[in-house]
């Protein structure tokens, strides 16, 4: 049988495939061991509860805060900030990226300052932003907007620039005008790049939120954590971290689902 000869052939490379079930279970072993070890160490007193509480304690705290509604209030505030910042930064980036990508004049006028600003670490702008917009809500939203702006701008720009000129030409010979070419060729052609930008922007938005909410916040997950630190409620601090991580994970997953539905044509591309 060919199968045995394949197996015996020295240096034969197996085709890449999904990990077998057994291997997938194997990959679970070390995380589970770590969590169990953590739990055990906390329970036996090896880890001081004020340094790192047991995972079950963190979960219990999470359940308590969910039930009394505290967590929901803070989570909603954090989400509002992230949403508003993403919307403002994203729309601005989308407009400027489109102008720079489509128009030569726009490219000449918009791209150089953006390229210069890109080198500034936007989280390092916190002191300046405090002077400019104060320490209120606008600081958090500005910070998120700044973080979201760059990935979306660059990917919009690159997405438009990378569109195959020959496709635009073919659309022209099919009688498509400027607006129709934008709708049928440029927009769908730039969409994969836009999604990539959005994913990076969401990551940047959560990061900005973490930093922003540690500056004089009255609500939000970050505030929850800062307040808990004052009272040495380590379980709440760890819970905040967990919530941040989950937010990032869930938003990324959701975006991936949307992306897969909107870019079905690429699956065919990958199959060939």
């Amino acid at each position: 049988m060919s199968r045995t000869t394949l197996a015996e052939a020295p240096g034969a490379v197996a085709a890449p495939r999904r990990p077998r079930p057994a291997r997938r279970w194997l990959r679970l072993v070390s995380p589970v061991t770590l969590v169990l070890g953590w739990e055990l160490a906390a329970r036996t007193g090896l880890l001081a509860p004020e340094k790192l509480p047991a995972p079950t304690d963190v979960l219990a705290t999470g359940w308590r805060l969910t039930r009394d509604g505290t967590l929901a209030i803070h989570l909603l505030d954090s989400l509002t900030r992230a949403g508003a910042g993403l919307l403002i930064g994203g729309l601005l980036a989308l407009v400027l990226g489109t102008v720079a990508g489509l128009l030569r004049l726009g490219d000449d006028l918009v791209d150089p300052p953006v390229q210069m600003a890109r080198m500034l670490p936007h989280l390092g702008l916190v002191p300046l932003l405090i002077i400019w917009v104060g320490i209120g809500e606008s600081l958090k939203i500005s910070l998120v907007a700044l973080g979201a702006f760059f990935p979306i701008y660059f990917n919009t720009y690159a997405g438009i620039r990378d569109i195959d000129e020959r496709l635009v030409e073919a659309a022209r010979t099919c009688g498509l005008g400027q607006a129709a070419r934008l709708r049928h060729v440029v927009l769908p052609g730039a969409l994969p790049s836009l999604f990539l930008g959005l994913r990076l922007a969401i990551g940047a938005a959560w990061l900005s939120l973490v930093v922003g909410e540690q500056v004089n916040a009255q609500t939000g997950i970050g505030f929850l954590m800062m307040e808990a630190r004052e009272f040495s409620q380590t379980d709440v601090v760890v819970l905040g971290l967990l919530v941040y991580a989950l937010l990032g994970l869930i938003s990324d997953l959701a975006l991936r689902v949307v992306e897969r539905r909107m870019l079905t044509w690429r699956r065919g591309l990958r199959a060939t």
Partner: peptide, 10 residues
């Protein structure tokens, strides 16, 4: 054209 130049997303 020499290449088909079909829009891949349609």
């Amino acid at each position: 054209f020499q290449e088909h130049r079909l829009l891949p997303w349609k």
